[in-house]
């Protein structure tokens, strides 16, 4: 069961226009932000499939960047996330590809984000209705639903410390 509660059905409270292409993506970006402990200086983002076809119209680019900057789904600054990133000197690169080879779903993306000292490669899928899941962290296939509680420290210990030095290549 992916959807756990009424919050998953009546919600999230969010900036439009798409729960899967906007809100769910903010949540993935926010996970990357939290995982790295903030301070992201650059990010390369790969949109797959449905995301690569329609990301512009849905503000998916603003959504992922908003999340990477630490914004929540109902933060109206998501509308100006790209300007906000420019102001903070965050370097961004976007790429569009076809079907995602790592996860069978049309709404998938991969982010390679760097802070001053760390790099993380994280794959996320937006399942619909604002519900997202992380399926890839630093060369590990994972399954982390973002609508349920998770322990960031535990995740870091598991998927980060080990690969901390060599996590530069990624799977993209």
């Amino acid at each position: 069961m992916v959807y756990n509660s009424y919050f998953d059905i009546i919600g999230p409270i969010m900036v439009g226009p798409s729960s899967s292409h906007t809100a769910g993506v903010v949540t993935i970006g926010k996970f990357v932000h939290d995982f790295l402990g903030g301070g992201i200086e650059s990010a390369e983002i790969v949109f797959y499939d449905s995301f690569s076809e329609t990301h512009k119209g849905h503000g998916t680019d603003k959504a992922i960047v908003g999340g990477l900057l630490g914004l929540d789904t109902d933060d109206s600054r998501i509308r100006v996330a790209l300007e906000l990133a420019a102001k903070r000197d965050v370097r961004l690169a976007f790429e569009c590809r076809g079907e995602c080879p790592y996860y069978d779903h049309p709404n998938t993306l991969l982010v390679r984000a760097k802070t001053a000292r760390d790099t993380a490669v994280i794959g996320g899928v937006s399942l619909g209705g604002g519900i997202s899941k992380i399926f890839y962290v630093n060369e590990f296939a994972v399954d982390i639903p973002l609508n349920a509680p998770y322990d960031l420290n535990e995740l870091r210990n598991k998927f980060w410390q080990k690969t901390r030095c060599e996590a530069v290549a990624g799977g993209a």
């Binding site: 439009g16 798409s18 729960s19 503000g59 209705g129």
Partner: peptide
Amino acid sequence: EMNARMGIIVATPTAGSAGIL
């Protein structure tokens, strides 16, 4: 229409279908 303007809405169950309920 608020959703299309990137206004704040509640997904029910999605943003694209937020008007009906």
